[in-house]
Design a protein around this nucleic acid. Sequence first.
DNA 1: TAGCTTTGTGTTCTTTTTACACAAATAAGA
DNA 2: TCTTATTTGTGTAAAAAGAACACAAAGCTA
Lengths: 230, 230
Amino acid sequence: MINQNIKIAVDAIVFGYEKGTLYVLAVQQRFGELADRWVLPGGFIKDDEPLLVAVERELKEEAGIMVNYLEQLGTFGDDIYRDDRFRVISVAYFALVNPKNFVLKADTDAKDAKWFPVKQIPQLGYDHNEMVKLAHQRLKSKLTYQPIGFDLLDPEFLFSDLENLYCSILERDIDRRNFRKKILSFGIVKETDKVVKIGASGRPGKLFTFDKAKYNQLLKDNFQFDIRFA
Amino acid sequence: MINQNIKIAVDAIVFGYEKGTLYVLAVQQRFGELADRWVLPGGFIKDDEPLLVAVERELKEEAGIMVNYLEQLGTFGDDIYRDDRFRVISVAYFALVNPKNFVLKADTDAKDAKWFPVKQIPQLGYDHNEMVKLAHQRLKSKLTYQPIGFDLLDPEFLFSDLENLYCSILERDIDRRNFRKKILSFGIVKETDKVVKIGASGRPGKLFTFDKAKYNQLLKDNFQFDIRFA
DNA sequence: TAGCTTTGTGTTCTTTTTACACAAATAAGA
DNA sequence: TCTTATTTGTGTAAAAAGAACACAAAGCTA
């Protein structure tokens, strides 16, 4: 039997969005060399635990959250000293959540859990800043070809919320009329009959929902979600 | 220190293309339970070996090849019994090579190495058929937004070679004129002054090359390679 | 030299994308 | 209550990109 002295961990880059700002979840380590240091939520996997289960467990343990969207981002194992205690290979996951759904609570291993604006992330432990960077790129590009923006919003949202999300994450201006036209042309966003007014002034707006069933159905017919603007 | 009884391996899905057919490289195991079974090239990584180095080593050892293109595909670790001896998590890599560049030779661990047409891949060991499937999807989609097709061709190729590659891998017809117009409009494919005739009949054609330097330069200006047809 | 095969090339029509401005609904303050 | 500020909601015209389409040129073979 092969002898190997390498440990396997999972880490998660969890994005949250609120009022025009994109956030990443970090936790403060309680134990170890890097005690007090901010790192991504994550940890070693158990011998009989699928990777996905391990990520979900760590997110629950360390921050008390359940995410809306989760996919593998990539595996970090080329720098053999990325953890200076011993060799650790980490499988990074990319996750989206609506921050309103949870009150962050550091449970077991973590001293604290906190949302950092993606533009103001402190120096994290290990190679976690690299992971965030890669995840951020993934988010930006995925936003244009998969309807994952909805996983960052409330189930019912104003059209302007969706538009602002795209503007702020992709960091560019969007023509409001063209955006609306295009999104509605897909037929995966439905208008509800609720009209609400947020904030102090302005005309009230209709609430919209993302019709996931419709989207999945369209996928079977080779539908391709695609948003790109000038 | 954490106790974990999990081993880490790498596997590679290496695609080759020749005369309208897409191939995948497989090797026949020499030892172990699955002796004689065809599997993807790969193996356990060494304690002090970066993942990428491990893949390249295995490809050299098991098949005697060096690839043109290599990127991480994904990590397989959700099925904890994917290897029935003990738990193995495998990091799969996606690779492209021009089969003409090498004579396959099984070296150390492998009894034999062989190209299988992607349409006729036998049942492979472990979850390797799944890996091939995922890699095949990646190839198809990546072909449309990154100029990786050139890594499957000779450095100098006929336009029809490129066109046939796209047709056969994407499994659809392509309008020859529109394809040529579009590719040439990018400015990353240069016409050489060589004219050759392959095969028995027909008008000779010019050879073309992919100008990678030009492509990298365009990338800095936000150039987006993109090929989609009706 | 007639017939087969492969390369090479332009134009028209259709669809998609871009650019752009004003009225309607509400709140606040004069 | 009227004016101002703010946000939602909507259509059209011009430009660009994509789709559809056919025939001549070069070489080989019989």
